[in-house]
Nucleic acid binder design. Structure first.
Length: 367
DNA sequence: CTCCAGTCTA
DNA sequence: TAGACTGGAG
């Protein structure tokens, strides 16, 4: 008994057949770059369609072909002329690569695009997926595409819960795509995957009732079409920590003027304890707080208050507030001011600090 | 505002 | 593996 390879396990002829049948009856057949095997026209459309929607490309494709009807014409044209006909489509690297590619095809291949996806992928502006699309549509090569549409369709149908941009996941998607390739009818299959992603399996509000893959779709079965594919994990913003002193004496709290630039610039705030992390609530931290509090008077006792987290656009600040009770005042500088806790709502304080002090002013909450 | 998209480059 | 490119969708 021969052991099944991963490739065999992923293969499923009924998948491609469902896509092909749907494409023939419900797919798109009349786009200007369809119904041709002219690799030049196909290549041009694929490059224009990178990062660009069909509707936008429609306005450029015909004009471009009129001016540059063959790859030779394009190769011979001055680059300003090429750029001018691309102007407005964006991603101008594509236009520069397009021109360079045309020259290479003329010089290296006598003006005939290679049919081998591996050779196509060596040309400027043509990556693995675009190479496969050109080869499939021009010579019917059995090559797999993997663009945003296919990633979305696969993520949903196969219930892929990992981020498709991650290398391991993307490699697995490619393997799956190759295993699922039909023996014949690659053109319809490839076009079908594109059309499915563009017209039914859309990013938001997919039209599942019309989808030929509905019965085999994991996301549909589990009601997770809105969650798949999972979006790029937010890279964790840096986290910072600060210990703040809540020095209380006679119904007043000690505030400190902050530097005019930087976070909370120019506002009043609570004195910050530097020299140790703000997160720890232990004897070492308490000792630092006692030492820091001593510059404002005679420290009676210190008490850790409930820590809070403040989220900025670019980082997360963990605040460890420490209440410091004084038995005598002394040492505060001109940057400091004693503020009546009753009137704390009027102080120019950062929102999280004001919230903290307002809660502190409420009797009973912090003993 | 954030997310997303193929290819190329750092 | 992250970012640049550029514009559209949400």
């Amino acid at each position: 008994m021969k052991r099944l390879t991963e490739f065999d396990q992923l293969a499923d002829p009924t998948f491609s057949q469902a896509v092909i049948d749907w494409q023939r009856s419900h797919g798109r057949h009349t786009l200007p770059w369809q119904n041709t095997t002219d690799a030049y026209r196909i290549w041009l459309s694929e490059i224009m369609l990178q990062q660009t929607q069909v509707a936008a490309v429609l306005g450029y494709y015909g004009r471009f072909l009129e001016r540059f009807p063959t790859v030779q014409a394009l190769a011979e044209a001055p680059s300003e002329d090429v750029m001018a006909h691309w102007s407005g489509l964006g991603y101008y690297t594509r236009a520069r690569n397009l021109h360079a590619c045309a020259k290479r095809v003329v010089e290296q291949y006598g003006g005939i695009f290679p049919g081998d996806p591996a050779l196509l992928a060596e040309l400027p502006g043509i990556g693995r997926s675009t190479a496969a699309a050109i080869a499939a549509f021009s010579v019917g090569a059995r090559a797999a595409i993997m663009d945003g549409n296919v990633k979305r369709v696969f993520a949903r149908v196969f219930g892929i819960e990992q981020y498709p941009g991650e290398k391991r996941v993307e490699d697995a998607l490619w393997r799956r795509a190759e295993a699922l390739l039909p023996e014949t009818g690659v053109e319809s299959y490839t076009q079908g995957l594109m059309d499915l992603g563009a017209t039914l399996c859309t990013r938001s509000r997919p039209d599942c009732p019309r989808c030929p893959l509905r019965e085999r779709c994991v996301a549909y079965a589990t009601g997770r079409t809105a969650e798949l594919p999972v979006r790029k994990p937010k890279k964790t913003s840096p986290e910072k920590r600060a210990a703040l002193l809540v020095v209380i004496d006679g119904g007043q709290v000690l505030l400190e003027q902050r530097a005019s630039s930087g976070i909370w610039g120019g506002l009043l705030s609570l004195p910050e304890v530097d020299g140790h992390l703000g997160g720890e609530v232990d004897a070492v931290a308490a000792a630092s707080v006692v030492a820091a509090g001593a510059q404002f008077g005679t420290v009676d006792e210190v008490e850790a208050l409930r820590p809070l987290v403040h989220v900025f656009t670019h980082y997360k600040l963990h605040i460890a507030p420490w209440q410091v009770r004084l038995s005598a005042r002394g040492g505060a500088t001109g940057r400091h001011v004693w503020w009546d806790l009753q009137a704390i709502a009027d102080a120019p304080l950062p929102a999280p600090v004001k919230k903290l002090l307002l809660e502190l002013g409420r009797p009973g909450l912090f003993g």
